[in-house]
Nucleic acid binder design. Sequence first.
RNA 1: UGGGGUGUAGCCAAGAGGUCUAAGGCACCGGAUUUUGAUUCCGGCAUUCCCAGGUUCGAAUCCUGGCACCCCAGCCA
Length: 560
Amino acid sequence: MSDSEAAPTNFIRQRVAADLSGARVSEVVTRFPPEPNGYLHIGHAKSICLNFGIADDFDGRCFLRFDDTNPEKEEMEFVESIQRDVRWLGFNWQDRLTHASDYFERLYEFAMELVLNSNAYVCSLSAEEIRESRGTLTEPGKESPFRNRSVEENIDLFNRMREGEFADGEHVLRARIDMTSGNLNMRDPVLYRIRHQVHQITGDRWCIYPLYDFTHCISDAIEGVTHSLCTLEFEDHRPLYDWVLDNTSVSCHPQQIEFSRLALDYTVMSKRMLTQLVRENHVSTWDDPRMPTIAGLRRRGYTPASIRLFCERIGVTKKDNRIEMSLLENCVREDLESSAPRRMAVIDPLKVVINNYPEDLEETFSAANHPADAGFGTREVPFAKEIYIERSDFMIDPPRKFFRLGPGREVRLRYAYLVTCTGYDTDDNGDVTTVYCDYDNQSHGGNAPDGRKVKGTIHWVSAKHAIPAEVRLYDRLFMRENPVESKQHHFSEFINPDSLITVTNAMLEPALASAENESRFQFERLGYFCVDEDSTAGQPVFNRTVTLRDSWAKQRGQGS
RNA sequence: UGGGGUGUAGCCAAGAGGUCUAAGGCACCGGAUUUUGAUUCCGGCAUUCCCAGGUUCGAAUCCUGGCACCCCAGCCA
């Protein structure tokens, strides 16, 4: 990455470094613990880069652990996509792929310890009764009438819960802590619930499932995690995290450290809302290129390096934050600028006839695949009497600062010739249908024979050689920076109706015919594009990842 | 007087009592180079760190008191 930027540092890395140098830990162990109930998004990428990044940089280890304690919401499709996405991002968990469900038996034993020491009890209140007795933010809760069941009775009941003697919801196991705590999480939290539900891995072996607060800390401890990094909303859970570890015989006590989650302008970042976008068909799939999912960004054309760079640049703090889209976009542009080969493509074709160019002549011009890196090589681009140029590169009555084509104006056809506009045809609506030009046959390759200045250089594609293609132009998914800010409007009301514009008659230079799925190019003067998996042999499909910076559009007061 | 957090430029974010008339990135505004109005390059962009007091020779950094914003009342994670 760029040398001028400081190496990643943040309060968590500083703490890890201090723990290592102070010998509080001898090796750093972290974990990325997704629940397989949806696809990973860019916010998860922040956590992945943090956890795996720290392990890599401090010579430690990082686990990929599925937090699979709620079989109702979890699916195999998600566990597969998560692994695919983490790997694609460039991280390697080696043999450290685990599941909270791997520990169900041990979790049960630790729960039994709590029961044995009167630190947990079986509560037979209904869910509603538990809620009602929990109190409120300002009033203490009331103790459950089952709070003082004997250890023997609790052992018996808890065992029978496991054996399947009870229906869902009939009993729960609760920690016995403090119903008057100002921290609601400490008001005798539920540790286990009965759920007769097939689990994607353990099948029907269990009908009781441990909850997050009990599972997570113990799973961390079992794996020898030293620093358990999570988002801010778990801050209130830390006392419970510590309580469970302090009251069971687990031999290790990881430190939970919280950081703020990522918010990105013009999108939403909760799995609940992303799930809704997919289910309600506001987008096509989890990997729709408009989605902030890793899979969506990938299909959009983002590179793993660009996402890692982004995660590095946004930093890690405890402050609520909202990142501007331009930061993310700048990261792909920066990566693709040096890595994407250049090509010419016309998205909104306007036919140009070169009056004085021989009818049946065909030439070929050598074009650099990268203007600043000869290592990319060159390719041959065919040229003939009829070509296509971008409709926006011609104006009937252009303003003075317009450097492109207009009646009587001369421009350079990139790598080919200098041409001067001699006229144009329009249809009944006054729309231009054909532009006529004369070319300077002394300007082969686009070089002015007399050294005259030609300010404008435009891209083009030979009409008879062009490959028709579909191009999908993406824009922000929402029209509001923060789609969930409004209390009276549902976020789906703010979906940008123009977030996807499909162009079916784009014209590509022939070198693009054989582009492989997911390969990325810069279409000169337009932006970066990526081959979509919907491409077929006869009809390539390209997704626009991001436009190029466009100071001309800016000057005219418009976006892209 | 429920508990837990956070406040440094438009957006992120360094900063840990003196080297701060406060790094870096994005955005923005110039200007140079350019066969992509791209890239690259140079320059500009907080006398001020939520506010008010205080401690100190010296405070964004320490203390006190305010204010603002975020999170928590799932048998979700």
